[in-house]
């Protein structure tokens, strides 16, 4: 497997600089109808993501984190409130974001290489065959899928599919990334490598990111700001700036005492919610 590049000479962007608002949620609530009953999934969420910020959403499963990404992507309309992107309300599919959903959305009838290159077949991102080949090869290298270009998704492991989906999203360099548990299915080592690689890419290309994860450590390592959600209905319970420098070295960061302190502080917020969500599930049964 090719070695991931960890050298990044580009200027760092700190979390504290004042920047213009990229994404804004204003008093957003979402109801879902299931089996005739209406369930409130998200309630009263007001959230701002400045340009180039890396924001992490953590919370127990079913707290509406993914719902928020769906709304920012323009795939779901809020029941109440408004979603803004670059100062304009999001009313249709938001083609300026790259969205990596929990379930990889590779096309099963295309090989890895054809999946990754699909963006260049679309009119809005057309590229020459040569350029496409080159970029795809570069991306396959980046996510360590060399040798699997001609495999179909069904022939790959869950982790490899995730990496292919990541490559497919990154190849057209969207200005904003929406990541829903991007590393959920990966083994621990690979997870570290890809976290570091993603950090590097985001820092170099100065992208705005919303990362949804249930892994608090991942959130603290990668994000400029962590938002803790309550269990259903999802509300914002706590927000915490993460003051670590950029570029970051995730490998080294996790052994610092400040990291442990922030981790513990956020865990104290989070653990009640996990307990509540488990209790809720028990109560439902």
């Amino acid at each position: 497997m090719p070695v991931l590049r960890l050298v990044h000479p580009e200027p760092a962007v700190g979390p504290t600089e004042a920047r213009r608002r990229k994404i804004g949620l204003e008093k957003v609530a979402v109801d879902f109808a299931t089996r005739g009953k209406t369930v409130r999934a998200v309630d009263g969420v007001t959230l701002e993501v400045p340009e180039k910020q890396f924001l992490a959403l953590v919370g127990p499963s079913g707290c509406g984190k993914s719902t928020i990404l769906n709304m920012v992507a323009g795939l779901l309309a809020p029941t109440e409130g408004t979603i803004e992107y670059d100062g304009a309300p999001v009313l249709a599919a938001n083609t300026r974001v790259g969205y990596m959903t929990q379930k990889d959305t590779l096309l099963p009838w295309r090989t890895v290489a054809d999946n990754i290159g699909i963006a260049f077949e679309l009119r809005c991102r057309k590229a020459s065959a040569g350029e496409r080949r080159e970029r795809v090869a570069e991306m396959i290298d980046l996510v360590g899928l060399g040798g699997f270009e001609r495999h179909y998704p069904a022939e790959l492991s869950g982790g490899m599919r995730k990496r292919a989906a990541l490559a497919r999203m990154l190849i057209y360099e969207p200005e904003t990334l929406l990541l829903d548990e991007p590393f959920g299915a990966l083994d621990a080592q690979l997870r570290l490598l890809l976290q570091q690689e993603l950090l590097h890419l985001v820092e170099r290309r100065q992208m705005t990111v919303i990362l949804v994860t249930h892994d608090l450590e991942e959130a603290v390592l990668m994000a400029d700001r962590v938002v803790v959600f309550t269990s259903r209905p999802g509300r914002i319970r706590a927000t915490r700036d993460i003051p670590f420098e950029r570029p970051r070295n995730a490998m080294e960061l996790r052994f610092r005492p400040e990291f442990s302190a922030i981790h513990e502080e956020l865990w104290n917020e989070l653990k009640d919610e996990f307990a509540a969500s488990i209790g809720g599930e028990r109560g439902a049964k």
């Binding site: 109808a33 323009g74 795939l75 779901l76 309309a77 009313l91 249709a92 599919a93």
Partner: peptide, 8 residues
């Protein structure tokens, strides 16, 4: 915007 639950 699309609304998935919007069956006719």
């Amino acid at each position: 915007m699309r609304n998935r639950n919007a069956a006719p």
